[in-house]
Design a protein around this nucleic acid. Structure first.
Lengths: 113, 113
DNA sequence: CAAAATACATCGTCTGGCAATATATCGGCT
DNA sequence: AGCCGATATATTGCCAGACGATGTATTTTG
């Protein structure tokens, strides 16, 4: 059941989804993503640095995002932008997340007698 | 930030939440829970046996559920029911799940300009 | 000038979930 | 009667995700 597997992987890696989502409005660098995610979720999703950077590297290895250094600023920043594949992945996983969330909600809501 | 920690733990163990939820309408035995979860989520959450039983044992150890064997039927069945603590836990974690889900949704939705 | 924030990164560890495996009974089909 | 699939519980070994801790260096703020 590859479909099943997909659902599983999706919910497990939902922080990666958050990272992708943070890049929808244009390129960002790591530290800014961390803050953006925290703020967009009203502080509820605190993306740890030890979690964020591995995710970024993995997404890059997968080809979902592409990185480039900006040395012009004081501290060098590594900017990430979504690739075409990354945009597709974001859409697919967003749909998947919503399906998962509504499945959980169905379990939590009182069933019709 | 203990609050943060709570949020994290909640989303990680969301299958345990599903198990608790499956017991709201009265006691159930393992195999029935497995099917109930699968059906209530339209097949999207397939609770693996190797996942379910450890969860049940853990919830029991925590005192959230209580087990009793029914030997009267052919194959003996182990019935689980929510304890008072389990009901409280279900409510708390349900609220937590919804907060988490809406936080993720906030990230996925296009932000207001 | 010191402290806090910015900015990237890695490592070890813990935990959750899964596949595989094991055991045993029951119902239906042939 | 014999076989198979579904029922029913359970354990084990493995892998991946996430976290805390730690490290380095610069820049802003007090």
């Amino acid at each position: 059941m590859p479909d099943d597997q997909f659902q599983r992987d999706l919910w497990r890696g939902s922080l990666a989804l958050a990272v992708l989502a943070a890049l929808t409005d244009g390129p960002q660098y790591g530290y800014a993503i961390q803050k953006a995610v925290r703020e967009a979720s009203n502080g509820q999703l605190a993306l740890n640095a030890g979690t964020l950077y591995p995710i970024l590297h993995k997404l890059e290895a997968q080809g979902a995002i592409k990185a480039s250094w900006d040395e012009s600023t004081g501290r060098p920043r590594k900017w990430y932008r979504l690739t075409a594949a990354g945009k597709r992945q974001l859409k697919t996983q967003t749909d998947g997340w919503r399906a998962y969330a509504s499945a959980v909600e169905a379990l939590l809501s009182p069933k019709p007698a």
